[in-house]
Design a protein around this nucleic acid. Structure first.
Ligand SMILES: [Mn+2]
Ligand SMILES: [Mn+2]
Ligand SMILES: [Zn+2]
Ligand SMILES: [Zn+2]
Lengths: 155, 155
DNA sequence: GGTCTAATCTGCAAGCATTGTTGATTGCCA
DNA sequence: TGGCAATCAACAATGCTTGCAGATTAGACC
């Protein structure tokens, strides 16, 4: 996405007002690589602006999505995640433990569909999603398992 | 998934009762390649058994998923889709117009991540999702566009 | 076949993410 | 500096899915 200053311009160009609420959302998203949910954006904005409503955050995220400034991702984590990195095409990795999302690059051109893609279908997007456990969650599972072992031995 | 007869066995083995409701769900899913939603399964079962509840269909789908007899797919279509093809690993194509889902094969081994996969991450699944428009929806869009053209010219 | 009982069924309420609504508020241009 | 359309906050409603509780039933035992 563009910088908060450039976004101010873009919003006015499109005929949308530049309110303090929207600027606060810009600031949270700019150069943010965490792929936050609407709720997470709301919490972070609310630290600086406690009166903002979740509805306004959703509205601003939708506006930014419509303008192509951010991406709306559905990664099967329950809530949508928003991605301010629209400059470089990329794919995602999701931790099924904690919901962490990270960018991954993949060479789509090397992908072969073995002629199973129907000819009449117009592809708009090919998306790769890597699911698994991040190192943090792996370590936590490890701890839990050894603790179970311990209490079993102790009982 | 196994055949309805084999599923009867498997359910009893696991300690689950084989009720007419469950058998009706088995029959709808067996050799069904349409990736139906819970609602769609419900509608089809209800044709033969009008008293069945949506809740029971969900429960049976969850049981079958837990037993590994079907797959629970989240393809961003609003509702979950259920896939009775667990025998062959495959991927999916989704029409953003009508929600149609079709199987596609892809050679995952040929996929290169350019060293962007973090080393500490344990991958459980790599999923490819192709989004676009099916031929039916493309034709419909075509019709609508020419109709718009028509009424504009006529006005 | 008849009895018993835990599992299941149905109907409805509730949960969660997201959107609709509406009266009050405010950015922005004249 | 006004005026007003756009926006805001609060709350209701939506769509999908699960929780709950009392009525019903599959399947084991006799
Ligand atoms: Mn990203
Ligand atoms: Mn499939
Ligand atoms: Zn994690
Ligand atoms: Zn379609």
């Amino acid at each position: 996405m563009h910088s908060p200053e450039e976004l101010t311009q873009r919003f006015r160009e499109v005929g949308l007002k530049v309110t303090p609420q929207r600027q606060a959302v810009f600031r949270v998203l700019y150069q943010n690589h965490t792929h936050p949910s609407a709720e997470t954006v709301y919490e972070q904005v609310a630290e600086q602006m406690p009166t903002i409503s979740l509805r306004t955050v959703y509205q601003t995220l939708n506006d930014l999505t419509d303008m192509g400034e951010i991406l709306h991702l559905d990664l099967g984590t329950g809530s949508a995640r928003f991605d301010s990195n629209v400059e470089h095409a990329h794919h995602h990795l999701v931790c099924e433990g904690c919901g962490l999302v990270r960018d991954v690059e993949a060479d789509l051109d090397s992908l072969k569909f073995n002629e199973t893609l129907p000819s009449g279908f117009l592809v708009s997007e090919t998306e790769i999603l890597v699911r698994g456990q991040c190192e943090h969650c792996l370590a936590q599972d490890q701890n839990r398992r050894s603790q179970d072992q311990h209490s079993k031995a102790g009982a």
